[in-house]
Amino acid sequence: MVAAVLAESVAGDAKIVVKKFSVHYGAYTALSGVNLAVARNEIFSIVGPANAGKTSFLRVLNRMDALTSGMRYEGTVRFDGHDIRKWRNLYALRRRIGVVFPLPVGLPLSVFDNVAMAPRLRGVRHRDELEEIVERCLRRAALWGEVKDRLTALGSLLSGGQQQRLTIARALSQDPELLLLDEFSIAIDPVTTMKIEDVLLELKKEMTIIMVTNLVQQARRISDRMAFFHKGRCVEVGETAAMFDGDVRDEQTLDYLRGRFG
């Protein structure tokens, strides 16, 4: 109920509104009972133990469920007020949403082509323009310094952490309105992670960010609001600062946030 009320409270300027939402794989329900809203230009984080359904939630937001056999969702998801289930051109929807996967996927193309792919998909042809986009996105992903001399090397041959930043650059090259990050920092060292966190704080002026993270401190550092998922349910949603201060409905949430889970 509280979640529903909260959803209403931001619904006025919400980028994403999710109601009575559940995700299923065949007969198996991976996630249910999700009611939440994500405001424009906020960083919204989702935390929770493994198997909570966090990734499943993100995958529905850009309609990857349509590509996975057996996967479906119930309830409604509104993107800018439009029901994404009724969105006919899913390609157009996905182009507005940048995704960073937990396992970094450097495509078997050059570093340059990896980042230039999304601009090319939307029709950018001029070399100068592509070069400008590639450099800007690689800088934002804190990767430019390391790869500027090897833009023609295969992206899939970069180190794990570099590939992860490459996927971040690639997601940014879409100029997304919504950025979905799924454990974006698991392969990245703490110093670089901090740099990217700073970039995210900059980026939220331009876009809405939803990130799944296993690091509760990361959620605390940069997210405005957060949700706690556990065992396939959305346990609660609230202001990050308030939740860390102990303003929670469910003791489990506080235990998880304080690292006393088990």
């Binding site: 929807l93 996905r94 507005r96 996967f101 879409q174």
Partner: peptide, 16 residues
């Protein structure tokens, strides 16, 4: 033999 992760990553970007 091309990993499905490649296809998925491109599809997530809105590639047909």
């Amino acid at each position: 033999a091309v990993p499905d992760g490649y296809r998925e990553a491109a599809e997530a970007m809105g590639a047909t």
